[in-house]
């Protein structure tokens, strides 16, 4: 399953224009699976990206609008779209000109995948 999953993640970069990096991490920023383009800063893999999202997502869930689902941050040159796929975090880094709507759709598509990864993780913990 690992190989199929990695292939699927790698294909995402070619499927969506401007998508530079896809990572699925746990709440501490530990990377469970990633696909990163050559022309993006390796800093997208730093745990800080996930840990800060975790904190912010918790705060956003206190706005009185129920749970936070996703956050889109638009910068001049790039955009980061992150999803609360509890217990995991999915991060997409793309050019600012990338289709944000498509990236948000992708997040929903990836929820099924992250659910599989999360349950595989918890099974492993039980066995250990």
């Amino acid at each position: 399953m690992g190989e199929e999953l990695q292939t699927y993640f790698n294909k995402l970069l070619t499927r969506i224009d401007g998508l530079k990096a896809v990572t699925v991490t746990d709440g501490d920023g530990v990377i469970l699976i990633k696909s990163v383009s050559n022309d993006v800063s390796p800093r997208v893999l730093e745990p800080a990206l996930s840990t800060t999202f975790s904190v912010v997502s918790d705060q956003a869930s206190k706005l009185g609008l129920k749970k936070n689902k996703s956050i889109v941050s638009l910068f001049g040159l790039f955009q980061i779209v992150q999803f609360n796929h509890t217990p995991l975090i999915t991060t997409l880094v793309a050019d600012s000109g990338s289709n944000t709507g498509v990236l948000l759709d992708l997040g929903n598509e990836l929820k099924e995948v992250t659910d599989i990864i999360a349950s595989a993780l918890s099974e492993r913990q039980v066995i250990v």
Binding site: A60, L63, N68, K69
Partner: peptide, 10 residues
């Protein structure tokens, strides 16, 4: 620079 934030909640 950060230009815009969209926060999606339930």
């Amino acid at each position: 620079n950060l230009k815009f934030l969209l926060v999606e909640c339930e």
